[in-house]
Computed example of a mutant assay.
Amino acid sequence: MSNPLRERAARVKASARRLITERNDLENRVRVLEAEVQENRALNRRIAELTDVVGELLLPVADQDEAKVAEVLAAYRKSI
């Protein structure tokens, strides 16, 4: 003879385990996504810096200002 109360308790316990597992999986996924967002921000910042350097180089190169080109390149090399 089965006990309906015990069966229900077992189902509730199994559901609680599944929910805890799902919560843990979601927390891990959020941690991974947050790390990826930080990495993406760092890459975007680096792209912006390189874009600035390219912009700073284009004008002096177009004006054939070798001294300014050397200055901009030296400042860039110091920053990396």
Rank of each mutant, 00 (worst) to 15 (best):
A16Q: 10
A16Y: 08
L58W: 06
I20L: 15
Q38M: 14
A48T: 05
V61W: 01
I20Y: 13
E49P: 00
A67P: 01
N24W: 09
I47V: 13
V32H: 04
L50W: 07
L59K: 08
E49D: 11
Y76I: 00
R18G: 01
A74W: 02
N40R: 13
V32F: 02
L73A: 03
E34C: 02
R41W: 10
E39G: 04
L58H: 08
L19D: 04
D52W: 03
Y76F: 12
N40A: 13
N24Q: 15
R17N: 10
K78L: 09
D52Q: 13
D63H: 12
R23T: 11
T21N: 14
E39P: 00
L26H: 05
V30C: 03
E71A: 14
V69G: 00
E49Q: 15
R23P: 00
R29E: 15
A67K: 14
N44L: 15
L59G: 07
A16F: 04
E36Y: 04
L43R: 10
A62Y: 09
A35C: 04
K78C: 05
A75L: 06
L59Y: 08
A75K: 07
R31P: 00
E56W: 03
L50K: 08
L73P: 00
R17T: 06
L73S: 01
Q64S: 13
E56H: 14
I20T: 10
R45Q: 14
N28L: 14
V54H: 06
K68V: 03
R41L: 08
L73M: 11
L58I: 11
V53Y: 02
A70D: 15
D65T: 02
R17L: 13
E27K: 12
E49Y: 04
D25K: 10
Q38V: 11
E34K: 07
G55V: 01
L57C: 02
Y76W: 14
I20S: 11
R77M: 08
N24E: 15
R77C: 05
R46L: 03
E71Y: 07
L59W: 07
G55F: 04
L26A: 14
V37Q: 05
P60R: 02
E71P: 01
A74M: 05
L26T: 06
Y76V: 04
E36P: 00
R77F: 12
V32T: 10
D65W: 02
R18L: 09
N28K: 15
R23K: 09
A70G: 03
Y76E: 05
R17C: 03
L19A: 13
A42I: 07
E27V: 04
V30T: 06
S15I: 10
R31T: 08
V54Y: 07
A16M: 10
E39W: 02
T51H: 13
G55D: 08
A67R: 11
T21D: 13
R41I: 15
T51P: 02
R23V: 14
Y76N: 01
V69N: 00
Q38H: 13
E22S: 06
I47P: 01
R77V: 12
D63N: 14
L73N: 00
V53E: 02
I47Q: 06
A16R: 12
R23W: 05
T21S: 14
A67W: 06
L33C: 02
L73I: 04
V72A: 01
V30G: 01
S15G: 15
T51A: 07
E49S: 06
K68S: 08
A16E: 15
L43W: 05
A74F: 07
E36W: 03
L58E: 12
D52T: 12
T21W: 12
